[in-house]
Design a protein around this nucleic acid. Structure first.
Lengths: 342, 342
DNA sequence: TTGAAAGCGGTACCAA
DNA sequence: TTGGTACCGCTTTCAA
C-alpha cells in the first residue's frame, strides 16, 4: 500500500528524487540513494505496475502466443522463455491460440490489440494472412519460434535438414524401404511438417529412391503415431524396413505399435525421430536433437534486443541439430522382414 | 493510439460520458451510447490497460503459479484456466515456480508482491510455510488446485479415495500382492502422493493385507516409473501380481517396463493408475479418472466469485473420480507368476 | 543534485 | 442524463 510519496517523505526527499533513486535513472547522490532505498525497504514499497506502465509506456511484460501448451515442444519452449524472463524480472502473459477456435479469433481481435506487453513471442503459431495482419499492426516487436515468416524475426531449427539427415542415416544403414509418418494431408498443413517431409523426400530422391517415397498421414501426437503405425505395420507385406517420424512423439508411437505387434525394434524395424524428446532415452530412440528450451531463451534475448533497440532488419536464427544415435536403428543386413517376433 | 478523449470529441460528448458509455457503468442515453460506440469503432479505440488499472485498481489479469507446465496434469489445468479466462476477456500471467530453484524464491519474494493480478490460482504448489506467508500477505483472493491448504479455497479430487478405490479394484480381482509405485521417500514429499499412498495402505489394511504393503519409490514421471518398474519386475521372485501407480504416467511407465521384460499385461501383471491421462487409452490402462481441465475452469469460477464478492469462508470443492476399466487389469485366477512371456 | 509540477489515460464523484 | 474535475501512482522535463 505504501506509495512512492511515503517513501519520499520518510527519506526526506521529493517524489522525483525518490523515483530517480529507486529506478537508477538520473543523478542522485549516493547518500540520498541509500536513504531512499532504506526507506523503501522499511516500508516494503512495491511500485504500482499500472502507474509505472501508464507513465513509461512499458508494461514489463512479454506476451507469448502458442497453439498448445500440452505438447512437449511447446511446453519446453515455454519453460525456456519463462526462465529467461524470470531472471530479468519480466512477467509473462500467455495466450493459448488453438487453431480454428473462436478463442483464437478473440485473441487476435481483442487480446493482442490491448498491447499489454512490450513484445510478443509467437511459438509455432502459423498465422493465416488475416492473423498476420493483426500481428503486425500491433506495432510491438515480435519474435517467432518455428516458422518461416518474413514478417518477424525467427528462431528455429532447420527442419528440412533434420529430416534429411535422419533419412540419410537410415539410407546409410542400407534401408531402402523408408516411410515417413506424421502430418495431415497436404492441404491444411503445418509448416514444420512440410519442411520435414520435404527433407525426407529430398534425401530419398538424392539416393535414387524417389519411387519408394511413402508418406503416412497421422496426427502429430504419440497416440496418433501409434494408431497410424498399427495400421502401417499390420500388414507384413506392405511393411517398410525403416520409418522416419515427423517428430519423436510420432516415432515413439511407432515403436509402441511395433512392440504391440511383436515387431522387434531395431532388428526388424528401424525408427528415427526428430526432437530428442524427454522419453527418447527410455525408448532408446535415435533422433535429431533440438533443444526447444534454448530456442525459448534465444527468442527472449532477441526480443529484448529489439525492444531496447528498435527493429533494424529481421533476424533469422537457424539452430543446427545433431544426430543422436541410440538403439532404434540398425543396419539393414540383419533384417529378416518375415520375422515378426520380439 | 486514439484515447478516450478523441472518442469523446468525435461523439461530441465529454470524456466522462464516453467512459460511461463504453464501460456500461452509469446512466447514458441509448442514443449517446450508440454514438460513442460508433466513434470508438471508427477510431479503433482500445483502452489503455495501465490507465484502467491505475484508475480502477483492477488489472483484468489472473495470475497462475505452478511448479511445472510440462506435465500432463498441469498442462491440462492450465488449458482449462486459459479457456475460462479467454471467454471472460481476462489475461493470464504465468509463474513457473519449480521447487528448490532460486527462480521460485524470486517469484514469491518479488513477482507476486507486485500484485499484477486480481486473483491467483496456485496449482499443485505445495508452498512451504514461508511461501504460504508470502501468499497470504498479498491480500488478493487465492484458489488452490490440488492440496489441503486451510489458507485458501481449494479445488481437488479426493486422492485418498481414488487410490483406495484403485487398490480395492485389484483386491476385488483376487490380487493380494499389490505394490504401490511412485513418490519420493517420505521426507520431502508431495501431498498428493502422500494421500494416494495412504489410500492404498488403507485399502490393504481393510483387506487384511497390511503385511503385503509395499511402496516402491520413483520419480513421478513416465521414465521414472519405467526405471523403477524395470527394477521391481526384474526379479521374478519378488514380483507383485499387481501394481497401483501413483498416477497414470508412472503406471504407463510400468506397463512399458513390463512389455520390455516380456511380462504380459494384464495376464501376468495387473496395473492401475490414477488420472485418465491422454495416453491411457493407448495403453489400455485401467484408471481412476480425473479431469484437470474441469478443475481449472472450476478454479476460475471460484476465484472470480471471490474477487467479485469478497472472501466469506474458504470453499473446498472436492471432485469425485470414477473408475474406468480398460484392459490393464485382470482377475488373479489366471495368473501364472512363473510365466514371463508375452 | 534536488524539487515542483505537468502529464500518462482513464474513472468516478458531484453538480448541473 | 451529462459535464467538470479531482484523483490513481509514478516518471520526467525544467528550474532552481
Amino acid at each position: 500500500m505504501a506509495g512512492i510519496a511515503e517513501v519520499a517523505a520518510r527519506a526526506g526527499v521529493s517524489k522525483a528524487t525518490a523515483s530517480r533513486a529507486l529506478s537508477g535513472t538520473g543523478y542522485v547522490s549516493d547518500a540520498t540513494r541509500e536513504r531512499v532505498r532504506r526507506a523503501a525497504d522499511d516500508l516494503g514499497y512495491v511500485p504500482s505496475a499500472g502507474a509505472v506502465s501508464l507513465a513509461t509506456g512499458r508494461t514489463q511484460t512479454i506476451g507469448v502466443v502458442m497453439p498448445y501448451v500440452n505438447r512437449w515442444f511447446f511446453a519446453e519452449v515455454l519453460e525456456g522463455i519463462q526462465r529467461s524472463l524470470l531472471e530479468r524480472g519480466l512477467d509473462l502473459t500467455l495466450y493459448d491460440a488453438k487453431p480454428g477456435t473462436e478463442g483464437r479469433a478473440r485473441i487476435f481481435d481483442d487480446f493482442l490489440a490491448r498491447k499489454r506487453f512490450d513484445g510478443l513471442i509467437a511459438v509455432g503459431l502459423e498465422p493465416v494472412n488475416q492473423e498476420l495482419e493483426r500481428l503486425t499492426r500491433i506495432g510491438r516487436p515480435i519474435v517467432s519460434v518455428v516458422g518461416d515468416g518474413e514478417e518477424t524475426s525467427v528462431v528455429a531449427v532447420d527442419d528440412d535438414y533434420a529430416a534429411r539427415r535422419a533419412t540419410e542415416h537410415l539410407i546409410g544403414l542400407g534401408h531402402r524401404d523408408i516411410a515417413f509418418v506424421g502430418g495431415a494431408p497436404e492441404s491444411h498443413w503445418a509448416h514444420v511438417d512440410q519442411q520435414r517431409l520435404a527433407g525426407y523426400q529430398r534425401a530419398m530422391n538424392d539416393a535414387g529412391l524417389a519411387d519408394r517415397v511413402r508418406h503416412v498421414h497421422s496426427p502429430v501426437t504419440m497416440p496418433g503415431g501409434y494408431a497410424a503405425s498399427v495400421d502401417l505395420l499390420g500388414d507384413a507385406r506392405r511393411r517398410p524396413s525403416a520409418i522416419v517420424g515427423v517428430c519423436d512423439e510420432v516415432a515413439i508411437g511407432t515403436i509402441i505399435a511395433a512392440r504391440r505387434l511383436g515387431i522387434s525394434v531395431p532388428s526388424a524395424l528401424s525408427v528415427v525421430g526428430i526432437d530428442d524428446h524427454e522419453f527418447a532415452d527410455m525408448f532408446a530412440l535415435t533422433t535429431l536433437q533440438q533443444v526447444p528450451r534454448e530456442q525459448g531463451t534465444a527468442a527472449v534475448e532477441l526480443l529484448l534486443a529489439e525492444i531496447a533497440d528498435p527493429p533494424r532488419a529481421r533476424t533469422r536464427l537457424r539452430i543446427p541439430s545433431r544426430l543422436i544415435v541410440r538403439n532404434s536403428t540398425a543396419p539393414m543386413d540383419g533384417i529378416d522382414p518375415g520375422a515378426p517376433l520380439l
